[in-house]
Amino acid sequence: MIPAPFEYYKANSTDEALKLIRDFGEEAKFLAGGQSLIPMMKVRFARPTKLIDISKVQELRYISLDGDYIKIGGLTTHRELEKSSIIIEKIPVLAHCAHEIADIQIRNVGTIGGSLAHADPSADYPPVVLALNAVIVAKSIAQEREIPINDFFLEAFTAELRPDELLVEIKIPVMKPNEKAAYIKIGHPATGFSVVNCAVKITLDKEKIEKARVAFGGFVTVPYLDEKVGEFLIGKPANIDTITQASELVAEGREVIGDYYADADYRRHLAKSVFVRVMKKALEI
């Protein structure tokens, strides 16, 4: 399969990439790992006339600890995240999530920035970065801005990024000892993409739940933070009764995707039971 023709430009730095996109406007696209864009170009769902290759912009490939945040460069690959000793130690749920993505070959090239910008509702990162309350840093020639993750996923395949903006960094608060997190995906057996996925971050005050961020993807058109479930959990004892009761509220009032592979009722049911499993995993009960 052969993509439509395009002009190729290689950017060697963030500034170079931002200048190119400013000059070219919407006919150009960034090429990061290419693991979503190239397949789409091969079937001609995407036909950009200019590609700005950012895959060699080394300054956007890093993982560092800076005070209360872990900062991750937009071009960091899934495999780098899954293997990073900082991530494994400070935010193990993110290492686990990165490991769940596709296969070794895709993880060697695909990037976290590319995945988040692509905003596939069945991707692995969205519920995890939602639960972890990440901050997205986007940069254009004119400005740099921070986007809270709650405002980032707008529609299926649409994130809060302007066409001339590069996702340069993801900031994630370091987990504290009383914070517990977990992620589980039920992947489609052939494609591996999520039929349902769920991530939670629970803050404990002794035996009680002090704060809860519960996020879902896969079975809805936009990955989301389930505030009803989160609010229900607050102040309740961290036990199985609480979890079972909370599961009844999952996706309440939300439209659920149904398709050939898994209908909406099944996915809704699955989301509830995945939530129970994720909570048990996070709380180790």
């Binding site: 399969m1 090429l31 397949p39 895959s55 070959q105 895709i106 090239v109």
Partner: peptide, 30 residues
Amino acid sequence: CDTSSCGACTVLIDGKAIKSCTLFAVQAQG
């Protein structure tokens, strides 16, 4: 498959396995 699924096209780039049906040749320079 030519659709990034089967791995028959796997080669190493700087020691890392990648699917060569899902990378442009120009990107492999250097």
